[in-house]
């Protein structure tokens, strides 16, 4: 069964995924809104940057983050100068890495939902005295519900499953930065196949259930709104 270290890894993983997802929904929503509506010439540049984590080996992203977040790096140096702990090999560093790594999984479903939204409904709500943020909350959010659910679930699941970035910038500190995927790697290296099975099987099941949620939600939505 699960050891104390395994449970700690599980807890770190869930906490990381939850925080990352929340931050991504907060940052990703305005970004996706802008991407869906903007006609700026540099929009494709931003889109490409957002999509980079989809194609980049996680080690590459992790490598640059390590440099950026380390005591000599731009961000890490700034935090150290302000009296904080260096970000590399900390939970905060992991959150930053995960946010970047899972960004496209949150932004893209939201962008799709926003760009398929009927703009005339927003015009209608403007003529009904709703100011911009009110229009967003009362019209865009409810009509993009499936996009938000998909974005949240994919962001969460993808963060749970990350490995390379964590290994590069988080290290492997139990209770602080050791997440499930790395705990599994440790078990395999130590030839503890039973423990590895428990964790791997658990992750497999969790990922499957999360994805199933996405597809069920989308199906219900498309049936309800032909």
């Amino acid at each position: 069964m699960l050891s104390g270290a395994d449970l700690a890894a599980l807890q770190v993983t869930l906490r990381l995924a939850l925080i990352t997802t929340l931050i991504l929904l907060l940052l990703g929503t305005p970004l996706a809104w802008w991407l869906a509506r903007s006609r700026a010439w540099f929009r494709p540049v931003v889109e490409a940057v957002v999509a980079l984590p989809l194609v980049l080996p996680p080690t590459v992203l992790g490598f640059y983050l390590l440099i950026l977040l380390g005591p000599e790096g731009a961000l890490g140096g700034l935090v150290t100068a302000l009296g904080g702990r260096p970000l590399a090999f900390t939970f905060s560093g992991l959150v930053i890495g995960s946010v970047l790594y899972s960004l496209p999984f949150v932004v893209q479903p939201l962008q799709t939902a926003f760009s398929t939204l009927d703009r005339r409904l927003l015009e209608a709500s403007a003529t009904l005295r709703a100011p911009p943020f009110d229009r967003f909350v009362s019209v865009v959010v409810p009509l993009s519900r499936s996009g938000f659910i998909t974005a949240a679930v994919l962001g969460f699941a993808h963060t749970v499953g990350e490995f390379g970035v964590v290994l590069m910038i988080g290290g492997n500190i139990p209770g602080e930065t050791q997440v499930l995927s790395i705990a599994i790697y440790d078990h395999v290296e130590a030839l503890e196949y039973t423990s590895a099975h428990w964790l791997a099987g658990g992750l497999l099941l969790l990922s499957f259930l999360l994805l199933l949620t996405v597809y069920l939600v989308n199906r219900r939505w498309s049936v309800a709104h032909p």
Binding site: T127, L128, P131
Partner: peptide, 9 residues
């Protein structure tokens, strides 16, 4: 802006 014009459309 539209939402402050008091028009019905």
């Amino acid at each position: 802006p539209t939402h402050r014009r008091a028009v019905g459309y």
